[in-house]
Design a protein around this nucleic acid. Structure first.
Lengths: 123, 123
DNA sequence: TACGTAATTAAGCAAATACTTAAATACGGA
DNA sequence: TCCGTATTTAAGTATTTGCTTAATTACGTA
């Protein structure tokens, strides 16, 4: 683990490297937030869950378990991750919990959903 | 692992569930492709690498190791993952390899980069 | 109260991830 | 050809992830 600038290439532009380091440092918080969102969405199962919530407005764990052909605990654990990231809300109606997208926090997902549908068309 | 529709809620809309299943099935390929991209970007280190490549046009592993304060093998292994996903290209100039974004394959990353900068401003 | 269903939580485990160090490969120059 | 630098590859390991099964909690109803 080197902590200084060690690249010895003749062409190395140390000023450029310094600028990059400063940029990243200033943006550290933004990167953390975005990494969190993307790591949530970067799972096959969770991306489908988010897509379905966008499509259907709200769904319960039971529905998702059926649709995705997975066990309830497996779904439930994914939901907790997504919820902890602040991406979804839930409301209870009797014994059933309904989850829905927190639209304020998910502008980036709109782009992702659009992109998925674009891939579908051009494939 | 249940494989049939088992949700026994009175309110369960089996037609809705069926439609969801069919939609996902049709879009399976798109989801796979997008999951691949998002799982690449859903790592702190790799998201920064992609952001820097977008900013600087091209960088070598040595530069990235300096900027991110990581070892060369660690960077190299991330680069291979990103390359295998078809997101970046490389060119060699002497002993130095320069990596750059494959702009054709990374429209979704433009949205992500924009979103990162938006977080930065509103934070 | 006791029972049944929806859902979560807990514990355990196999697979995937992300580093480390050491060895190998690629290239240019003396 | 031999050496040094840039980079990758290989092997090993600790951590994280994503499921499983079993137990628990929450709620509605008889």
């Amino acid at each position: 683990m080197k902590l200084e600038i060690t690249c010895t290439r003749a062409e190395a532009n140390h000023k450029q490297l310094q600028t990059c380091m400063e940029t990243l440092h200033e943006m550290e918080g933004s990167f953390q937030k975005m990494t969190k969102l993307l790591s949530i969405a970067g799972s096959d199962v969770r991306l489908k869950i988010l897509y379905l919530l966008n499509l259907e407005n709200e769904l319960c764990p039971c529905d998702l378990a059926d649709i995705l052909k997975m066990s309830m605990p497996a779904i439930s654990q994914h939901m907790r991750k997504i919820k902890d990231a602040g991406i979804i809300n839930s409301r209870r109606d009797g014994q059933t919990l309904y989850y829905s997208l927190n639209r304020d926090e998910t502008e980036i997902f709109s782009s992702i959903f659009k992109s998925i549908e674009l891939i579908r068309k051009t494939a």
